[in-house]
Design a protein around this nucleic acid. Sequence first.
DNA 1: GCACTGACTAGGG
DNA 2: ACCCTAGCCAGTG
Length: 111
Amino acid sequence: MPEQRDYFEEVYEVVRLIPKGRVTTYGTIAKYLSLRAGARMVGWAMNGCHNRPDIPAHRVVNSIGVLTGKHFFGEPNVMQRLLEDEGVRVENDRVVDFKTMFWDPMIELAI
DNA sequence: GCACTGACTAGGG
DNA sequence: ACCCTAGCCAGTG
């Protein structure tokens, strides 16, 4: 079965659905897709998203709203700038009012 | 084939 | 409130 690598595409698809100005977490995506793999694999999937320019990876943060993947955007402040450009305030590498900016596919997409 | 690492998370001390 | 540990799966040495 070609399911081994297809969850990469599923992750990308969910990330693409994140509305502008909202953020979500690796664990949430993993849970939404019911991935046997954990949140780590979602992060690993994002590692391969450089081939897909239409993936807003900057809208994916860790469970407490910290921009853990900012170092993978070339310059350290690129991820923060992308978020703030969308109206997401970032302070000290952490999303301000993360609870409000949080986007949950379980709820928003109403599975 | 074993051990370590990592864009993670939750739980315990 | 902070530090550490244990699960988790794929890639790399």
